[in-house]
Every structure is written in C-alpha cells, then in structure tokens.
C-alpha cells in the first residue's frame, strides 16, 4: 500500500506549480485558462472559464472559486486516503475537517446575524464524502444557542463543547471563533502525535512548522492587534511540543512588542523575519519556510504518509496562489499588482 501511495504522490507532485507557471496563468487569455488549469489537474477550477473537453458541464457549476478550490483539495485527499488505514487515515481525514470547521463558523455567524437559511446554505462548502454535518438541519436552527447544542450532540462535540461554554460566559463571537480554532488544531496535533513515532522526523517537522506558524501569528495578532493580556493570549494558543513549546510561548507572550517577540525566535527564523513586514508578512515568510521544507520532504524517501502530507501542504499553497491570480484577473487588477500579491501573504484557510 505504501508503494501505491508513494507512486501516487510522485505522480501528483508533477502537477505542483513553479513560480513561472503563475506567470503563464497571468498571461493566458480567458480561452486558454481552462486548458492551463486542466493540464495541472485542476478540473474543479475549470468551471467558470467556459466548458472545455476536460469539464464539459463545468459552466453550470454554481460553486464559488473558493468552494471549487476546496472541492479540488478534497478530491485529491480522497485519492491519497484510499490506501491508508489506522492513525494515518484518521489524521488525513481530520486534516480535511478544517473546511467543515469553517462551515461551522459560517453557520454560527449566519445565526448571529439572522441570515436566511437558503443564503447561508449557499455559502457552505460541500464536503462530499468527508461531510459529517447535516447542513440543511443546522441551517434551520433558531439561534446560536440551539445551533451549538445541536452541534454538541454531533461529531464535532469535542471541538464545540469548550466553545459553547466560552460563548455562554461572554457572548463574544471572538471567544467562540478562537475556541473553535484552538480546539481544531489541538485535535490535529493530538492525531499527529499518534503518528510521529512511525512517520519519521519529516512528519514531525511538517507538523511543527504548521503549529509553530499558527501559534506565532496568533500570538502577534492577539497580543498586539487585539491587545489581549499575555495570560489570555497564551491560553488561546495551541498546546505544542514543537519548537515553540509552552514555556517559550509564555515568554514570548509576555514581551512588549512584535520586534521583541521576533528577536527571541530561533535563529533560523529570525534571520528571515522582519517586524516591518507586519503579521501577514510574518505568516508569508513562515509559510515559505514550511513550503521549502515540504519540497525537501517530497524529494526524499520519507514514509508515504509524510510525503502525502507534504504534497497536500504544497498543493494547498499552490491553490491559494492560483486563487489570487484568478481573483485578480476577475477584478481586472494589473498583472504587476497580482505578482506582488503572490509574493505577499497567502490567506489562512481558517
């Protein structure tokens, strides 16, 4: 099975984008875009760019670009999961659950603003076989309280329970979102730790890059944008045993400025991070560091699950850049501006 997965990952790796490929996409005419995307295996994204032989019915697809990007990611993850079982399978399935957590947050926000259920449903991302929530039923909940209680009786009870208590205490939507995000990533780290002994150091480092990046960006944002006290900031971060351990995060949260925080980071990050970049810039740099490492992992003979995870990280990064190009074109932005955007902050999925 691992031979199959390794071969599959190697085949998929050939579809990853290089910097010059984005230039080709930028220069392509509208008529050529569908074929360019289809050549890179992005059949789900072809919709909206006219029917092609690769996706003849795509023109009628009602999904948004973002929804199609997620559909593409889910399609590929589904193929990679097929030969897996046990902890590796659980991990990749849970990896896709962050899209469902995003749906869950959309539902909660919709209920807070009293959005119509039909409009709310249209904004949710179809999860296909990965879906565990009954969108229709949840969209018909009367208010946030009823929705949270229903969610607590469902598959995301572990993620929602703490969030509900936090929300009931404060009625602050920020507390709700922060609790959901933290619970999701703690669940991911927990599932990853079950794999780390057998999936090798490569897997641990991929996870470390992900969790450390999230913790650093959240820390900077909560501490210096939202001005939360250090203790609360620390509480909202993901429990971690990677480079930024709990003790390190407490020290960083207690510092008084972003510059001071960046100055205390490990040497290999410090040389590449600059406080003047702002938080999006820090995220982009950390993302780049993680991507460089993922490329290295992909080229090694690391265990199949590690290579599959590295591929998924890189593929999602590509898809975010493809989205930037396509959105930029739709908005009629100059190519130079889109190129700048490509080198700046990729947006977080959650």
């Amino acid at each position: 099975m691992s031979a199959y997965l390794n071969t599959r990952v190697s085949l998929y790796s050939g579809r990853l984008w290089h910097a010059e490929d984005f230039d080709v996409l930028l220069r392509a005419t509208d008529a050529e875009i569908a074929d360019t995307l289809a050549e890179r295996g992005l059949v789900q994204l072809v919709a909206g760019f006219g029917a092609s032989e690769h996706a003849p019915a795509a023109a009628n697809d009602p999904l948004s670009l973002e929804q199609r990007i997620i559909a593409q990611t889910l399609d590929e993850t589904r193929v990679l999961i097929r030969p897996l079982n046990g902890a590796a399978r659980n991990f990749l399935i849970y990896w896709t659950a962050r899209f469902e957590v995003t749906n869950l947050k959309t539902l909660l926000r919709g209920k807070m603003t009293g959005e119509r259920s039909a409009a709310l449903l249209a904004r949710l991302t179809p999860m296909g076989s990965f879906g565990r929530l009954d969108h229709q039923e949840l969209s018909l909940a009367e208010d946030v309280g009823e929705l949270l209680r229903r969610l607590e009786a469902g598959p995301y009870a572990a993620i929602v329970r703490q969030a509900r208590r936090a929300f009931e205490q404060s009625h602050d939507p920020f507390n709700l979102d922060a609790a959901l995000d933290r619970a999701y990533y703690e669940g991911l780290a927990q599932r990853a730790s079950a794999l780390e002994s057998c999936a090798g150091p490569g897997f641990r480092n991929l996870m470390g890059n992900l969790i450390d990046r999230i913790n650093l960006v959240w820390l900077l944002r909560y501490r210096f944008n939202y001005n939360l006290p250090p203790a609360q900031v620390y509480f909202l971060l993901v429990g971690s045993h990677y480079s930024l351990t709990g003790a390190r995060l407490r020290e960083l949260a207690a510092l008084g400025s972003p510059e001071a925080v960046l100055a205390e980071l490990p040497q290999e990050w410090r040389t590449r991070l600059d406080a003047e970049q702002g938080i999006p810039g820090v995220f982009a740099t950390m993302d780049r560091i993680a991507a460089e490492y993922a490329v290295k992992v992909l080229r090694t003979d690391a265990p199949a699950i590690t290579r599959a995870f590295a591929y998924l990280i890189l593929r999602e990064r590509d898809l975010r850049s493809v989205r930037a190009v396509l959105r930029g074109r739709q908005l009629g932005l100059p190519a130079a501006d889109i190129r700048i955007a490509l080198h700046q902050a990729p947006q977080e999925v959650m």
Partner: peptide, 13 residues
C-alpha cells in the same frame, strides 16, 4: 483580577 477574569471566561470557568 481583570486579566484573570477574561482568561477564565475563555476557559469556561
């Protein structure tokens, strides 16, 4: 105490 109160609300205290 104010710092503690915010944290405790978040923690479901």
């Amino acid at each position: 105490q104010d710092e503690v109160r915010g944290l405790l609300a978040q923690a479901g205290w």
